[in-house]
Nucleic acid binder design. Structure first.
Lengths: 209, 209
DNA sequence: ACATGTGAAGCGCTTCACAGCG
DNA sequence: CGCTGTGAAGCGCTTCACATGT
């Protein structure tokens, strides 16, 4: 069995990768049962998911940890660096700019932008905050293909379109609104209030999931 | 058609609610086509989703905006206030503490916690940061049933268990690790690196979704 | 006339259960 | 013998298409 990799599998691969990294300095082999335990999914799902990357396990033994990590990284496009810009330097934008987890995984922040003159020119995480007016030019010049939107809801759609025409092909949207994806651009939404509301739905009913 | 509400529907209800709020001061009726356009889903899905809340639309006309918002809020448990605590006052934890979007939607932050003596005692968003040693007592005392974890990965599981025994029933986990849900606790994960890695998967392949 | 509500068909993911293979 | 890889069955969600109701 090979491609195409199901959407849901793509969403789980990063989780598996992190689990593998967390035991990297242990024994060289790992079974689907062990990954399943760490990742909180069934072992059948693990095996099915991994089978989409080709058959890299050894029957009766398990998977070679290092090899499997390489396979997953390759699948996710993590064998190269990715340049990203963050737009919106409010609380969340600054937190994202200062978040160390990006660089570790080959995501390089190459620009920070905001429209507020009180913020432009200030330093965040060792970078100067630039005005939105320069966004289009600088995204293109620096070759950023990922944009992170952390602006108020009202600004998000316009920023998304500016990013799109500047060469950005993937957008991670933290603004509390739905963005209509510009042509050729993939948008993912991360919404804090939404997550809390999902939790209260289930808490109201006294059962999980 | 009535209950139970499918998981995927629960995940979309908060989005519909936000769309409705954004046109609240417009005309009193809205069609499934209009909601679909705003929310970025098909109108058939809208109608099916809303049918799980009961039939509140008027054929040939659409849905009453105010009435529909009430129905969704009731379904999501948003007719009462919810007390939450945030654990971990790093960049992300502070950003969450300062995020205005929670209070607007009836989520009250009643405690901020961190283990670092340099942080405890300082003020964040008008609240004193307290040490983890007081977490258990204070969560119970203040009746928080939602916990937000913004700690490093290593601390997340233990914090989750402390929260659980203190009365927390829902956890929103921002730590870059998978938490094994304590008994009776619902855990949702928000993971920035994971989201970026999903985007690079598709960007590597030149197609979205 | 028009938009909802919904059976039924279609589709994709999960789970099962075991064949395959080291 | 143990664990992977995988057809097949099962399940849940989406989409279709139109009956229903105002």
């Amino acid at each position: 069995m090979k491609r195409p990799v199901p959407k849901v599998t793509v969403q789980r691969l990063p989780v598996y990768l992190r689990c593998l990294e967390s035991l990297s300095t242990g024994k060289p082999q790992v079974s689907s049962d062990e990954i399943a335990e760490m990742a909180g999914v069934s072992s059948a799902k693990i095996r099915k998911d991994l089978s989409f990357l080709g058959s890299h396990g050894v029957r009766g033994v398990g998977y070679d940890v290092e090899h499997l990590m390489r396979e997953i990284r390759m699948e996710l496009g993590l064998t190269r660096d990715w340049a990203l810009v963050i737009v919106g330097m409010g609380n969340l934008g600054r937190a994202l700019a200062n978040y160390g987890g990006f660089a570790e995984r080959r995501f390089q922040t190459v620009g920070l932008f905001d429209n507020d003159p009180k913020k432009t020119g200030t330093m965040v995480h060792g970078m100067v905050v630039e005005p939105i007016s320069t966004l289009k030019r600088e995204v293109a010049a620096r070759g950023a293909t990922i944009g992170v939107i952390a602006t108020p809801a009202e600004a998000a759609q316009e920023i998304a379109e500016t990013l799109a025409v500047s060469g950005v092909r993937s957008i991670l949207n933290f603004a509390p609104t739905v963005i209509k994806p510009p042509d050729g651009v993939d948008v993912r939404r991360v919404d804090l209030s939404t997550e809390l509301q999902i939790l209260t739905f289930y808490q109201t009913r006294n059962f999980a999931d």
